[in-house]
Write a protein that binds this DNA or RNA. Structure first.
Lengths: 126, 126
DNA sequence: CTGATCTACAACCATTTGGTTGTATGTTAG
DNA sequence: CTAACATACAACCAAATGGTTGTAGATCAG
């Protein structure tokens, strides 16, 4: 059962953890693997030239960032991706880009002169 | 003049640096500030409860991640944002999400039975 | 039951990170 | 010219990161 997939807005600390988790090539690859299909931690670990414990730690970082969840199945721990969080991170970056776009649009307005439909004079007779 | 805005594909190290730079609340705010309007490093620094040198370091991290550039103007160093890199990071996350979407679409295909237009038998007479 | 497998976690280590202070250098204002 | 300002950079420190090995507990196969 999937609970709490995209609940509230992220806190600054959560965004820190999300981008921090994405700032490592191995972790991005683990995320990619888990998006392509659920796998056990040991199954994932076999793909990388590092110890099982190291991969385990990387999965834990992704988990604290809410990018993946783990579900125990017998003696294995299955890693599920959480694409909703990835999507929200992408939208967050879009929002940053929009800030810039809006600024450029405003500059464009200034350069092309005040639009005639706007009346900002204070001394207009009623 | 703006050069090399969105040249080649990013290397893994560059993507590490981009997400790493975004993984800090102060740096995201500096980025936001510079998207809203160019500012000097010292102008930016006045917004934060830390030393000028600390802010200088944060700007340097954003710069190594290609998210901002600096341009010297007199005795000041003006920080320009590079929205193209932000945009490419967002598209990168979209691509991860697409991996998942494609997988889900394939699972849907399996559940609804093989589509009749696909012929995968090996023993078809010519 | 026994042995192999999967996971968890602790302890340790080297490097990086995020902050500080201090010093030096260039630039502008007056 | 001189003083104030903006920057650069080095040295230092504590904490986090990314890796290792080792130990121990569950669970499954035979």
């Amino acid at each position: 059962m999937v609970v709490d997939q995209v609940p509230r807005d992220f806190t600054d600390e959560e965004i820190d953890r999300i981008f921090g988790a994405l700032a490592d090539t191995t972790r991005r690859d683990i995320l990619r693997q888990s998006l392509l299909g659920e796998q056990s931690v040991s199954g994932l670990a076999r793909n990388y030239a590092m110890s099982f414990a190291a991969v385990q730690k990387h999965v834990a970082v992704l988990e604290r960032a809410l990018l993946v969840t783990k579900e125990r199945r017998g003696r294995e721990q299955i890693v599920h991706s959480n694409p909703a969080v990835i999507r929200r991170a992408a939208r967050l970056l879009d929002a940053y880009e929009d800030l810039w776009r809006d600024r450029i649009a405003r500059i464009g307005d200034i350069l092309s002169g005040p639009p005639p439909q706007e009346n900002s004079r204070k001394d207009v007779a009623p």
